[in-house]
Design a protein around this nucleic acid. Structure first.
Lengths: 191, 191
DNA sequence: CGTCTATTTGAATGTACTCAAAAGCGGTGG
DNA sequence: CCACCGCTTTTGAGTACATTCAAATAGACG
């Protein structure tokens, strides 16, 4: 049962009663994606936030030349959405697309707002979640400022050892901010 | 009264009663910094989170060659801290230093945790704050991935028009991820 | 098997860096 | 009030990191 992963994840930060768990679970919808499927297209409004119970996705934006720039890889136990679009109701500027067969547990914005009202503990849960995400991003920014492509790559390998198996080189290059060609020669050089 | 700015800031997201305001204000300590003063030194533990009621600061990390890499400029109505150090109690990896004469309203970790318990609305307040911060950082990362130094600079000028007056070129270069020399020639070229 | 995309390779180019040095600017003390 | 000091900014030459363009090779999928 895929909900189990989400509940244990929540239990790390807040304690829910049986009834609260039941209420929360009643708000969830299951969604399945196959490789290449879009969870979100730029220009549309992001109406759900989705917990990843299985699989992985990429969040990317297209530049004026049509090149993908991957802002984030998303895997199990993390949330997939365009927060800005989700909270403001404006059109999303990024795309989210499945890399593998992916299973999601979705909650709509109205349900989430109700959840915050009925079970304020969820404010705490998501506050903690955003804190972690914020910290991780700060580290990513610092790395981009101070490190060469090679250093960023080895740091990436350390932090996400599963990456090399699950993501294409093209996508990893787009995440590191370099061209696939340069990535290829760099990888060869590093052995 | 500098507390006023903080209270109106909070009122944008949550509504506090008179007593709640009083309780909250009783937790605050005022701190003043002069240009160059440290709010936080790397290696020490960040024990407070500080609302900036006046002035500005920079958050930076030093690389192995001793060069500063500015992760963020902090101005009025924002919070200054090393979140990771603050929440885990581990040594900070970054430095925070005043650029101008700066006035801060500080709250300690224990007081903040108590605040979360006694006034859960503050969970909501900080949840919303981190969401905004997270979104802004995502945009910054996307910019770093897709744009040249020139594009990043003009985007920076648009987003922070006060920057050119308040921060040195050296610091802006360290924020954009380029050398002061290259920044200088770029600025000349752009007119 | 053929097509489509990802990866590799190489040459020419460009963006941004390093090193070095001069010029500007603000503060301090004589 | 001016001279000196330290730091920031500017400028220029040579260099390195990473890109673009082009083409060959390898893999995945119907």
């Amino acid at each position: 049962m895929s909900v189990h992963l989400l509940l244990t994840n929540i239990a790390k930060h807040i304690t829910l009663t049986e009834e609260e768990q039941t209420l929360f679970c009643s708000m969830l919808e299951v969604k399945t994606l196959e490789p290449g499927d879009f969870l979100l297209r730029e220009g549309t409004v992001c109406r759900h936030t989705s917990f990843i119970s299985r699989g992985c996705l990429k969040t990317y934006q297209l530049d004026e030349n049509g090149f993908e720039h991957i802002v984030d890889f998303l895997i199990e136990e993390w949330w997939a959405d365009d927060l800005y679009s989700f909270f403001t109701g404006t059109a999303a500027t990024c795309n989210i697309r499945a890399i593998e067969h992916t299973e999601l547990l979705q909650i709509s914005k109205t349900d989430l707002e109700n959840l915050y009202q009925t079970i304020p503990k969820f404010e705490r849960f998501f506050r903690i979640l955003f804190q972690y995400a914020y910290i991780a991003q700060k580290q990513q920014i610092n790395l981009m400022l101070s490190a060469t492509a090679e250093e960023r790559y080895s740091s990436f390998l350390k932090k996400k050892p599963y990456a090399i198996k699950r993501f294409s080189q093209k996508d990893i290059a787009a995440y590191l901010g370099i061209t696939p060609q340069f990535f290829s020669s760099m990888k060869k050089k590093l052995g």
